[in-house]
Design a protein around this nucleic acid. Sequence first.
DNA 1: CGAAAAATGTTAGAATAATCACATTCCGGG
DNA 2: CCCGGAATGTGATTATTCTAACATTTTTCG
Lengths: 242, 242
Amino acid sequence: MSSRKTGRIDALADALARRGVLHLREAAALLGVSEMTVRRDVGAHPERFTYLGGHIVSADDVAGGYELDREADSHAGAKLAACRHALRLIAPDDTIFIDCGSTLVHLAQQIPADLPLTAICYSLNVANCLAAKPNVRMILLGGIYHPASATFSSGEWLEPLGRLGINKAFISAGGVDVQRGASCSHFHEVPIKQKAIAGAIESHLVVDVSKFGLVKPAFFAKLSDFRSILTEEGARAAPVDA
Amino acid sequence: MSSRKTGRIDALADALARRGVLHLREAAALLGVSEMTVRRDVGAHPERFTYLGGHIVSADDVAGGYELDREADSHAGAKLAACRHALRLIAPDDTIFIDCGSTLVHLAQQIPADLPLTAICYSLNVANCLAAKPNVRMILLGGIYHPASATFSSGEWLEPLGRLGINKAFISAGGVDVQRGASCSHFHEVPIKQKAIAGAIESHLVVDVSKFGLVKPAFFAKLSDFRSILTEEGARAAPVDA
DNA sequence: CGAAAAATGTTAGAATAATCACATTCCGGG
DNA sequence: CCCGGAATGTGATTATTCTAACATTTTTCG
């Protein structure tokens, strides 16, 4: 049905990857077809393109945030606020570790474009944010991809993490319990988080207050492992002892 | 001058982080101001927001992304055609290696959603494509990110690659020379490509014909290392000897 | 080849958004 | 309390985009 059509769609996607936005007119000229046809093409592929008032944008650009979970946006405001506290802790030329989770995606997004950093991560979403920052030197811990959390389990690749000099580690959690500490949903994340915390000069727990009192299957740290706990309500010193 | 104003800007950013896109009308209602004011606010902060035909999106969403090379789409059609040949070689439950470069991004995109595979890659762009395929088990070789090519240089993480059982490796090149073999622009890619080729049962070079006769700084393989060379003009057996 | 179907192009009128000039409100300092 | 300037709102005007119906071309297949 559509060898010509498929080619167009693909050319569009490529152009978008390069330019970010494409006006209907430009797209039509680029593809050598009428604007009407471009409109129809774009409309036929809502999963790849988003069409906004005459402009074409790659669909995942506007994906409504990264929504790892349905709850990803339920506390977006709180998460954003918590990240602002984290941002204030970052100094130029720091080497930071950014954990996974929607909370820290916000942190990665908000890193100023002109702040020089080395950032270590193991989440595809975080990596995509960091890749867009020209002054961030990114190190991604690879391995087997886990779709549920958009992270990689490092396995054999984990060991070199211990040799990286981490200045500040920003860690998130699915649950925070004063007695038992911080927990998350995915077991493969545990060794990575622990290694990052162990190797960092200072670690900070970044969560929104809705996580307090929750418990997830995998505990990975005591609250006393953190120098501070950053929430939308402000930064507080972590309890000195579990 | 603007404590009220700053608050609005922040509220807008929050809403955007949550919703992805915001229509002028919604934004005005949300902030409790007139559409004109929202228009002015957004226009005053081009570094945070992009305004497209009545819709507001976060600026870094539309950041203009990857651009591996200026030539990325100049041969999009050819690259796509070359990938179709590659696709035909892939069987269910294969373990494949996908090299970097815009050509192979097309390959990753075109993997059918219902084809179960294990795929190894080291390019952020390819990884993003593979992450969208529910039946692909992805392994990403991490390391230091190289923005110019959107790839990772594996360094210490490279060694485990040798222990992965690769069924078919699909390799791209920036230049193909009958005498001297295949070359690429970035030196850090050389050991990865070589290790993949060495570890794979069969390797295939996927390029468009515009690459023939070109020479890039880093040679990484002889043409006889490949079982076949796949171009938009079809698959041909690789020369038996350099 | 020839008919049917799909894809593309064209047009005009309706809907929507952008711009501008000016009216109004809000706020801090005499 | 009043004044001046900044911020905001309003409405008319102009420009742009959207929609849908229909004309034309291209492809498919008997």
